[in-house]
Each structure stands twice: as structure tokens, then as C-alpha cells.
Design a protein around this nucleic acid. Sequence first.
DNA 1: AAGGGGTGTCGAAGCGCTTCGACTAGGGTA
DNA 2: TACCCTAGTCGAAGCGCTTCGACACCCCTT
Lengths: 341, 341
Amino acid sequence: MVTIADVARHAGVAASTVSYVLSGKRTISTDTRERVQRSVQALGYRPNASARALASQRSNVLALVIPLRTGMHVPVMMQFAAAIVTTARRYDHDVLLLTADEGPDGLERVAQSSLVDALVVMDIELDDERVPVLRELPMPSVLIGYPDDADGLTCIDLDFVAAGAHCVDYLADLGHRSLALLGTPSAVYERQTGFAQRTLTGFAEAAERRGVVGIETPCEHTFDAILHTVRQLLDEHPDITGLVVQNEPIIGPLLDVLRRLGRRVPEDMSLVAICADDVAERQVPQLSSVSIPAERIGGQAVESLITKLDGGSVPALTLVPPALTARESSCQAPHRDLTTA
Amino acid sequence: MVTIADVARHAGVAASTVSYVLSGKRTISTDTRERVQRSVQALGYRPNASARALASQRSNVLALVIPLRTGMHVPVMMQFAAAIVTTARRYDHDVLLLTADEGPDGLERVAQSSLVDALVVMDIELDDERVPVLRELPMPSVLIGYPDDADGLTCIDLDFVAAGAHCVDYLADLGHRSLALLGTPSAVYERQTGFAQRTLTGFAEAAERRGVVGIETPCEHTFDAILHTVRQLLDEHPDITGLVVQNEPIIGPLLDVLRRLGRRVPEDMSLVAICADDVAERQVPQLSSVSIPAERIGGQAVESLITKLDGGSVPALTLVPPALTARESSCQAPHRDLTTA
DNA sequence: AAGGGGTGTCGAAGCGCTTCGACTAGGGTA
DNA sequence: TACCCTAGTCGAAGCGCTTCGACACCCCTT
């Protein structure tokens, strides 16, 4: 392996000069700079990451804590991950992959050993046990999602309360008076995952505000579970004409189930999903949806982290407003019997 | 941050002694060892990763190169990733996440800067441009998948040739005489991805050998594409009674499409998928399938890497034999008109 | 009683880089 | 002409750890 000393010798300068050429932290004459750069090229020099990290107290590595847990929708996670890695690379950082099942200890481990110099943590529960740890850690972190007590943290998330409310408002505006939220598997609610709980809140508040019926039910991923859940829902509330779906993997089977149950989309049942755009567009009919801007949120998370690493300050909580795109799965509520109106 | 010197002082020993207690590389008296361990506990000491890496020439980090490309099935990737991270942690290593779009340069970067000390590379094309780079790299690597020329490399993969053949044999044994392989999107074939090509090969060879008709067609992910592909397939080959599917995301919609086209599964059409077990089991009817043992392959990849790092030797190519689980989606071929037999 | 072989511990060197202070030379100012 | 300032470069220290060789010490052997 070629070291900075080799480059220095080759270029006829001191090692520190090579370092300054590479980092740009001091002015170097054009002549010297070019000579050093040629030597770097010629020898194929790559600075040793550990040596650099040791001397500069910066590893240029970010930790990414990703949930690989039951009920999470994996493709969306990957979109986040991809955006985070890509953005990190743009700022000359790499990404260390941690799974959530290392828990709070995992965070302490990578932080206190200086393996990384900042963290991105996904899938935050309302009362997340990692939050107190993050607060005490001697390095910046950004949460994707936010806990109940977000004091002293930097959080970014889609505004799921608004998203839930937005769906209700949209359907209510179309004349629907009886709606249901078909949510994530119950395990996700049970562990008080932020996005699921908040959507629920937004949905319920908006239904109340608009004076429409708002039923909520979790839904597991198997076909049988979907069939059973939807059948029961429609049995108990036959007048439901609007469905909000926050559960990406069931979307395909759900359309099938509605067909089986004799409900046409959108004629008999309007559907609004909270999901990635490509998923919504792939369906037949294409789904009206509030999109999950994974790329934007992931990218922003990294940018906030870089800013904090550079000593800058960033907003404590960034809530991305939801955007609803109307597609083919929603329309005016069917004409209703006036005696019940 | 507390350093090894702090621990040494606290325990009244030399720093090197602390190091030996931690690494176990020299014998230390029980008395001293326990005293040091108590000091480590008391001070909450965590060795600095960079310093350790610099001194020992080992970062204890593995690179994981993951494809985030079109046509790949994301949940399966994640299963691999999860297995790799989990296994790496078991051997006290961490995982650096690289996306395939950094290309060969990305590999050189992390390797030559000693950021990592070994690599796992996924999604190998038959003529992969990263392969020559991996051969020259001064550190071990393991490929999940394998190129045409695997000389000097360590590769692990499901035996997709056998998997393709296995599906044909299974269906032929059930009396099916006319089969089709519904494959991945054409982009995957076009870039000569190993697993897709090899399944094709195994499928074709086995069909030939068994004297049955074997039609092959790629299939995109949208519902319309599936409908169109399957309709055309059945129009042109109305006598097809067995379908091999290697394309996880279309499985759900495919069942729907077959229903629409009036083919019952399995009475009119037997289905065998090459996919993760949980996907197969989630369908109605549950799918007969050759499973993708992501956990086993990912785990094994890391273990091979660790062995190589320790100077051991591992087989150049490990092909995991396919296992077919019969479920509800396949049965005897329907009784056929004897005049055509 | 002297020598030999473990065993346990220490000190120092060094991994490859960054960064600080210091030094030189050249150009401008008074 | 004497002085100062800036730009450009160097050398050395030090980041926190591992590892090598050396050294004591103790116990056993002869």
C-alpha cells in the first residue's frame, strides 16, 4: 500500500504538504499542488481511512439503523436506505448498516468506539428506548420519525397526522360519509410506531371534524386475513364507501378482495392509499394516494446530519406536508337514498 | 472519551497489558485480568475503532454491495442483507453498505483505503465488470451469485440451473407436457444476470430431456404487463398446464390474472414458483415453490469471508441444492384427450 | 546451589495521517 | 532602506491502539 510519505517523496515535498493539497485546508502554490496531484495519480494513492479517522477524529461514516422487523414494508425502507447512501456519498461519507435488533447498545457501541460520527435512526416508536441513548451520545443524530418527547433531537418525517386527515378531507369532499382506515398489522400499532399512530390520530380527528363515520382497523398481510378483515368491516358497516389504506403489501390482494366481495373500485368504493407512488401507479385501477417521499426525507436526513457535523444548526422537527394525487381509484360518492340523508 | 491509558492507570498496569486482556493474545494472570476487567467496566471503556484498525491493520468491517436496480426483488435482497449483518455481528464485524451504482470504483475505494477488510458482492452478472477488480483486490471477497469465469473467486449461490430443472421434472412427473417459465423483467436478462440466465438454462435443458414443451417469457411488474404476457402466452400455447414463475412481485397479480382468464389453480394450471417461502405461503392457494434460502446463503457468505480472513480456505464455488416444497398450487395434469396423446 | 524454562508484565516503537507552530522568501509599505 | 505581512512550506507531535522484544520472577530440575 502506498502511503502519504511515498507521495511526498515522489513529489519532493513534505508529507504535510500532501495532506494540505488533499484537504485544501491551507493555500498551496499552483505549481506544488499540481506536482502533488500528479504524484497521487501516478502512484494510485488512497489515504488510509483509519489513519485519517484517528488523526482527524472523523471517520466519515454514518450509521444507518434500519428496522428489519415484522410488519414493516421493506421496499419503502430500501428507498430510504438508497437515498441515504446516495446522499451520504455525495458528501463523501459512507454508511454503516445496523439492524434495529442491536437495540440501544448497538448505538452506543458504534458511537463510543468512534466507528461512525453521526447516526440516522429509522422506525421510531412513540416511546422509543433508543431516544434517551441518542440524547446522551457525543455525536449528532437524525431520526426518521419522531417520538412523543422529541426534546433535544432532530427529527424528520412525513406529517402523518396531516396525511390521515388529508385522506378524510379528500373523501369527504367527494361526498363520502362513511369511511374506514385499513391500517398496518396490529403488531405495528402495539409497539406504538409513530407513523401508524399518527395517521390514526389524523384520520379520527378529521372524521370527527367533518362529521363523517371513521372506522379504524388493523390488517395483517396474508390474503385470508385481508379477506376476513374487509368482509367483516363491510358486514358491520355496509354503508362504507371510502377506504384509506396504510399498508402497502396488502394493496394488490385488497383490490382482488373487493372484487370478490362485489365492490367495484371506484364506483362502489373509493380508495386512497398512503404509499409510494410507484406502487399506486402499478395497480389497476391506479390508486389515488398520498405518497411517501422516501428519497426526499432520506436525503434531507443526511443533509441535516452533515450540517450538524459542520457545526450548523437545523430545525428540531421537520414535517413534510403530505401530497395527495388523485388517480383512478376514487370518485364522487354514489348517489344515496335520501331517506337516510 | 476514555482511552486504554486511562484504563491502565485505573488498574495500575501498562496499556499493553490492558490490550492483552482484551484480545487474549497473551496469558495474563487471573488477578490482573479481573482487575483490568473491573476497570474497563468502571470507566465504560470502548476501544477506539480507528486506532485499533490502524495498529492492527484490521477494520473489522465488511463491505456489502447491494443492487438497488430495476427488476430486482427488494424483500429478498433485504433477507440477504439481514442475514449478512446478523452473521457479521456474530463474528464481531460490522457492515458497510454500498450500492451497486458505485460500480468497480466503489470497491476499489473502500478496499484500498482499508475502510473494510473484506467484501460481499451481490447480484453478479455473467460478465460482471467488478469481477476483474475483485480478483486484484488485496483482500478476500465472496460473491453471492457467480460469473461465467469464476476463476480465483469464492462464490455462493442457489443452484438455479438445478432449480429450473427441478421445477420441470416435478411438473413433468405430474404428467404435464407443456410448460412455460414466466421469468423476470427483460432488463434482468439483458444485463445477463446469473440467476435468471441459469434458471432459463436449467428449464430448457430439462424440458428437452423430458421431451416436454418448454416456453420461456420474461414478464414486467405492472398488472397490465402481466395480463398481456399471460394472455398472449395462453393464446399461443393453449395446451400449457404448468407454469414456473421466477418473479416474486408478480405472483399476487398473476393469480388474479389466471382467474380472470378462467384458469383455475391448480385444476387447470399448476404453478411452481421460485421464491421465498413466506411469499409462497401467503398466497391463496399456497404456492408450491423452490425456496430461496437467503438466510443460509447470506450467513454462509460471511462465514466463508471470516474463514478467509483467518487464513483458512473455502470452496471456490458453493452451490446450494434447490428444495421444492409441494403446496396447493400444483397437481396432476388434467386428463387429456387421448387422440392427442 | 546453580541453572533452565515458563509465565506474566512492561516499555517502546510504530500504524498513516492531520494539524500546529515556525520558518523562509518575496513583495509591498513607509 | 528597513520593516512587516502574507503566502507557501516544513517538521514534529500526537491521535489510541497493537505488538514485539525484553525482563523479572518463580518453580522445578539436576
